[in-house]
Amino acid sequence: MAQRLEAREILSSEEMARSLARISHEILERNSRVERVALVGIYTRGVPMAERIAGAIKEFQGEDVAVGALDIGLYRDDISGGVRPTMRPTHLPVNIQGKSVILVDDVLYTGRTIRAAMDALNDFGRPRDIQVAVLVDRGHRELPIKAEYVGKNVPTSADEQVKVRVVEVDGVDQVVILRRDEQ
């Protein structure tokens, strides 16, 4: 496997915080009734992001938003041949029936993670609607999926990797693009 080199930072810690704040405002703008919203973070890094957005909404609006955590391991479409990641328990705080569920993930790429997450949600109930919030949209969709809330659109090539790091998991808030080293 080719070595990876850290090419450049595309979001600093401050920019990340600003992006999440903007996404929180946009969620409020689009969903007038906060009590009908459930934020569901997709493991790993979507979970702390969902909690931060909930914290921001609480700051801005003074209202609590339900926050959940979703593992898509059971719903992946690439189970053949691949390594099976260790799963984390799914917690949905409320019955999602009739709620506006906002799926939160770090990077939107092929769209297959979101598809798997929608399948998973479906097994828990019938949401009123499903929206998607991501920190980075890097393009290259393989499914008809779009994000309502995007921190930053980043044109990438397939040999690059977008890595979101969050304090809760990685000890630092940062988004970088890694490019394969061709030596």
Partner: peptide, 27 residues
């Protein structure tokens, strides 16, 4: 798991808190 928060916004968005609530120790 409804979230009740009162930290200042910078700490909420800057994510200086400890790990996600109710997750087991995965170290």
């Amino acid at each position: 798991m409804t979230q009740v928060r009162s930290e200042p916004i910078q700490s909420v968005l800057g994510g200086r808190r400890a790990v996600v609530a109710s997750s087991p120790d995965l170290s």
